[in-house]
Design a binder for these strands. Structure first.
Lengths: 131, 131
DNA sequence: GTAATTAGTTACTTTAATGTACCTACTTGA
DNA sequence: TCAAGTAGGTACATTAAAGTAACTAATTAC
């Protein structure tokens, strides 16, 4: 395991020298799937890798892994690995991540309001293409 | 002017048959630059095309146009064209767009909190790559 | 002995998004 | 008469992102 050649890290604390605070956070959240993954975890409290994958069938393991790593490095998600067999890895919000919960709820509130739909939980979702 | 071959429209109202309200809105907002453009307009009230372009120097006219059209079609931005010479086009929030203002402020609040920075206005921003 | 399970990783290909440069119309001012 | 300014549109090349398939390791159930 070498994370030596890693070039980008997404820890928001490293953006502290940016003049615009907005940049770092938007850069982190507005990638494809990212916010949607957070919304899944917000609804479920904590989730295993495979569980997230099942709820978002169109995301590939590769991309899901990338996003989870990014959010972990940003200090938003906590990754807990239990070395049982089979392996069990659980993702949940860090304290910092919890600060996003209001935001996520508000997005959902607007979304449901605008579509005129109730908030039907994620298991009912089947997507063509998502973000 | 033929908008016949247009295939995608982003009006959130057309997502009303989706089971998950969250999809449409995230799909709309989490594309590159989109939310950042909204944040610019939220700060400035109303903006001309060239003004936005100057504040976000790294975005190309092509992409900026795409995003503005998308947001217009979604019913979030209002495009007002004055046929003076030179042409003057102004973008501002619709009533629906105004409902995003709290959300944008909240993102900015979190961002400033996390980076430990004050909210320095956009003119001080020089970005390498943004979203 | 073999398949199944979990959470990924890696290499390679393909697709989608973006960048770049050039073009438009119209009028004003030098 | 010619450049400047505005808000884009268009064609083509390029790049970055994503898809895909195959692979890993360890243990358990069949």
């Amino acid at each position: 395991m070498n994370h030596i050649e890693k070039k980008k890290t997404f820890d928001v604390r490293e953006y502290s020298d940016m003049r615009c605070a907005m940049h770092g956070l938007l850069n982190l959240l507005t990638g494809p799937w990212t916010t949607y993954i957070l919304w899944m975890i917000r609804q479920n409290g904590e989730m295993r890798f495979g569980q997230i994958k099942k709820q978002i069938p169109l995301i590939s393991a590769k991309v899901l892994t990338e996003r989870l790593r990014m959010l972990e490095e940003a200090g938003i998600l906590l990754r807990v690995q239990e070395n049982t067999v089979p392996l069990k890895v659980t993702y949940s919000f860090t304290r910092r991540g919890k600060e996003l919960e209001n935001l996520l709820d508000e997005i959902n509130n607007l979304a449901t309001k605008w579509t005129g739909n109730d908030d039907i939980s994620a298991k009912a979702c089947h997507l063509d293409k998502m973000t």
